[in-house]
Design a protein around this nucleic acid. Structure first.
Length: 492
RNA sequence: GUCCCCAUCGUCUAGUGGCCUAGGACACCUCCCUUUCACGGAGGAUACACCGGUUCGAAUCCGGUUGGGGACGCCA
């Protein structure tokens, strides 16, 4: 493959140890957008070498979250069967152990790595000693220059050893040309002799990451800034194995209000959580994209397609971004309200059902109700509060109605309201019919403005503020309106 | 502590030496629409961290200071 036609290949490489975090989702998004903008391939690789923490359940959750967001991959485990697809598999690191082993041996043979027999206790003691001395925190292994043959004999006899990369002879600066940060200079002693293979033979992150990126022909590595120091280790591995470096770009971190790395302790950070609260994937993507990237024409509300078309690394910037839930919510409302009413109903229906609300099933009513409540909907779960007053079994008079109920003028208004509704010949009300009754109440009692509307609204939805009465009443029927009027009256 | 990264309104950002008396969005305030609330519309307040250079000219380039963050694992 010539340099001119070389394909853009990027990857998202999560470890399946829990749900998908918004930070991870944003990394996945950027990779995806970069691939799609450039006609390249987006690969999903599973970093499951930490057997203690990786689970199949987590993998399934992760995949379902990615699927929900619509960030789909060209190579990697199939979304349903989890069976790998693509020419550079397997895509799960736990199935690539032979490859890592082979390259570790290569490094060992070249004198770039060594077996280290230090015990946990020895490492701990060494770290304490170094900490006291102040300088850096790298453990110096006494085994760095040991004979490999002798080490292998010890291992054959049952001793446990890790394979470490030897950094101490690499006295130089490594220059990374980061696509987002420009030139970054790492002194080689920034890292100590890091572990390649654990004592049980499982590879460690930096090693399999480098090996896989090479074998999977990854051209661009776009990942979060926290990986910047790892990049030095990976550069050393590439160099040790004589491989050409891919391009790197380190995206800023997503921060919490207190400017620390976003963490689950401060509220929802799992995509799944946002899904459950009723955020739309399109809004999530839109919001995440704008954390560190901007549209060339400053567009704010965008679809995935808009973003694919406009995404370039030149517009990704390097400073951290605070995750603002308020703006996310606003953005969700924008995406939601742009949808047709029937579509919105389909989205809120599961939330209403989950809340146990019994509501009319005819689609005209459903769409009309969406039209009525739309401007109050920010996230799908808001529908529950909005629709609850429409279910007779859930009707209650809220505390915020107290003031209205205490007004002297309220009782006569409610009595007149009840009388006129009773006199109404049909079970349902059109907007005009309601207006007529309302005028009747006005004439009978001489009340207008708040004195008129607040009591009626309380008798309708249990609180003085909310949607416009004339569009609310046509969503209700006579029987329930009357029952509610009784209840409100009883509280006067 | 050591190394690395970052630095424009409260927040997300535009800005790549003159178009900047710094633009947009969220949030906030005022007004309009509306006999409520929400939506929508119009307006307002609010920022180039600091100090030195370079330059005719600096938010933009360079150096330093300060502040914030990240990494220092047989986690990823």
């Amino acid at each position: 493959m010539s340099a001119l036609t070389s394909e853009i290949r990027v990857r998202f490489a999560p470890s399946p140890t829990g749900y998908l975090h918004v930070g991870g989702a944003r990394s996945a998004l950027f990779n995806y957008l970069y691939a799609k903008h450039n006609g390249g391939k987006f690969i999903l690789r599973i970093e499951d070498t930490d057997q203690a923490r990786s689970t199949k359940e987590s993998l399934k959750m992760m995949i379902s979250d990615l699927k929900w967001l619509g960030i789909l991959w060209d190579e990697g485990p199939d979304t349903d069967s989890l069976i790998d697809k693509g020419p550079y598999g397997p895509y799960k690191q736990s199935e690539r152990l032979e490859i890592y082993k082979k390259h570790a041996e290569e490094l060992l043979a070249r004198g770039k790595a060594y077996y280290c027999f230090m015990s946990d206790a020895e490492l701990e003691a060494e770290r304490e000693k170094i900490k006291a001395s102040g300088l850096h925190t790298h453990v110096e292994s006494p085994y760095a220059d040991g004979s490999i043959d002798e080490a292998q004999v010890r291992i054959a006899n049952g001793d446990k050893a890790v394979v470490r990369f030897k950094t101490r002879e690499l006295r130089k600066d490594y220059i990374l040309k980061d696509l987002i940060r420009g030139e970054v200079k790492f002194p080689s002693d920034m890292v100590g002799d890091f572990v390649l293979l654990r004592s049980d033979g499982m590879p460690v992150y930096n090693f399999c990451c480098a090996v896989d990126d090479y074998h999977m022909k990854i051209s661009h590595i776009l990942r979060a800034e926290e990986h910047l120091p790892n990049t030095l280790r990976q550069m050393m591995i590439y160099e040790g194995l004589g491989w050409a470096l891919p391009q790197f770009g380190h995206i800023s971190l997503i921060l919490d209000d207190d400017r620390q790395k976003l963490s689950k302790r401060k509220g929802a950070v799992a995509c799944d959580q946002f899904k459950k609260e009723g955020y739309l994937p399109s809004a999530m993507n839109n919001y995440m994209a704008l954390l560190g990237w901007s549209h060339p024409e400053d567009k704010e509300i965008m679809s995935l397609e808009d973003m694919k078309a406009a995404f370039t690394l030149e517009r990704v910037h390097a400073s951290g971004a605070v995750f603002d839930r308020v703006k996310l919510k606003w953005m969700n409302a924008q995406h939601l309200r742009a949808l047709p009413n029937a579509e919105i109903w389909k989205l809120i229906a599961p939330f209403l059902q989950e809340a146990g609300l019994k509501l009319p099933t005819d689609s005209d009513w459903q769409q009309q109700s969406v039209e009525t409540f739309k401007s109050y909907l920010e996230i799908l779960s808001d529908a529950i509060t909005l629709y609850t007053p429409l279910d007779d079994s859930k009707y209650e008079i809220f505390a915020e109605s107290d003031e209205t109920l205490k007004m002297e003028t309220t009782k006569p208004v409610l009595q007149a309201w009840k009388e006129l509704v009773t006199a109404h010949a049909k079970e349902s009300f059109t907007e005009a019919e309601f207006l007529q009754i309302q005028d009747g109440v006005k004439d009978k009692t001489g009340q207008k403005g708040k004195n008129l509307f607040f009591p009626i609204r309380v008798a309708l939805i249990g609180k003085p503020n909310g949607a416009e009465l004339k569009i609310l009443v046509p969503l209700m029927n006579k029987k329930s309106i009357l029952a509610r009027a009784e209840q409100a009256l009883a509280k006067c």
